Amino acid sequence: MKKNRLGNTDLYVSPVSFGVLTVGNTQLNLTVDEGAKLIKYAFSKGINFFDTAQYYETYPYLKEAFKDIDMSADAPERPVICTKSLDLSYEEMEYAVKEALREMDLEIIDIFLLHEVRQDPDWDMRQGAWQCLKDYKEKGIIKAIGISTHHIDVTEKMASIPECDVVFPLINFAGLGIRKGSGHGTPEEMAAAIEKCADAGKGVFAMKAFGGGNLTGQYQKSLEYVSSLKGIDSIMVGIGKKEEIDRLVSFAEGTLPCDYQPDISSKKIHIDPGDCEGCGSCITRCPNKAIGWNENGIAQVNHQICLTCGYCAPVCPVRAIIMY
């Protein structure tokens, strides 16, 4: 599979890539051995780019998957690993960096991001953590730094931040989860922000092309839309099965049949407890009253009466509604 240069960095990544969150305990909850075998299979098929995060608790899968791979800094065929942290302070981020190195048994980290940067004042509040990432890049322990975000305004801001090497924004053709300030944004606005970042030399890889699984039924349209945008170097997709790897690779290599239609009959709608803010928008929108509050004050789906219509997903302000 061809590799794309990630902006102005020295990192070259596959045009489709593996989001490791899916295999972890908040979604499929695969064993470490099962998840590691899936990651190794993807790597054998040409996918060399893997995304994780401190709070995903998926470091053990990557450590196991690549324990027999030369992961030294100058290894020519090493996978590219991105991780992220929600921390605000210098000290907290320093711990997160050292934790990632230790838990994945790495000498260096290819990409480290501030996780889910929101509209101001979030960026200002996280300058301690950002300074830590800059310092560890200067030491050569991190190769590239940047942010992940669902926000158009944050993506635009990164185009003018010289130390930011890479941006990981949310983008899909339906606009699911795209934010602008405190409201909703459009795919066109996010695409324009992505182009600004690319023009400024930032590497850009996209998240949520399938809108958290809600657009999987429109598989090719979803991937074709994101891959056609100017500035997208890779599309990060949550993966949980070998057949998902095979069809993703087929898409990237141009061999996927034009009439391909995935079977989504067994997929269910879930509320990610780590993202839900308890606003109640999905509860109000559900036509079958299948979503209610749980004991922790966040939304929960009753799968016995859920119609899997997906009407709830567009109204969620934080993209907490996923389908798998």
Rank of each mutant, 00 (worst) to 15 (best):
Y260L: 12
C276T: 02
K3E: 10
S14F: 08
P15S: 14
A53V: 00
I298V: 09
W123I: 01
S250L: 09
F205P: 05
R319Y: 07
E295N: 15
D110P: 02
C306S: 07
N48R: 10
V167A: 01
S265M: 10
L170Y: 01
P317I: 02
G35F: 06
T83N: 10
A198D: 11
C276R: 05
T9V: 03
I291K: 05
D105L: 04
S89Q: 09
Q127P: 02
C258M: 15
G146D: 12
Y41D: 12
A206L: 06
I47C: 01
T308G: 00
L176M: 03
S17F: 10
E244S: 04
C309L: 11
E224K: 15
D275I: 02
Y61H: 10
D105M: 07
S222K: 11
S44A: 10
G280F: 07
E57D: 12
I178C: 00
L86V: 00
Q119A: 11
A193N: 00
D122C: 04
P76S: 08
L114M: 08
C312N: 09
Y55N: 10
A129L: 05
E34V: 00
G24C: 07
L170R: 06
D10P: 01
E243T: 03
G177K: 02
G140S: 05
I269T: 06
R102F: 09
I111C: 04
I171W: 03
D153S: 05
G297R: 10
K230C: 06
N296W: 13
G203I: 05
R78K: 15
I239H: 09
H270S: 05
T52Y: 09
G254C: 07
Y61F: 11
N214C: 02
K289L: 04
G183M: 03
V301A: 08
G212H: 08
P169N: 04
K230E: 14
V318C: 07
G203Q: 14
H303T: 01
C82S: 08
C312V: 01
K84F: 04
P314I: 01
G201N: 05
A206M: 06
L101T: 03
A313K: 00
V249K: 14
W123M: 06
W293N: 09
S265Y: 13
C306L: 03
I147Y: 15
L62C: 03
L21D: 12
I152Y: 05
P15K: 14
A198V: 03
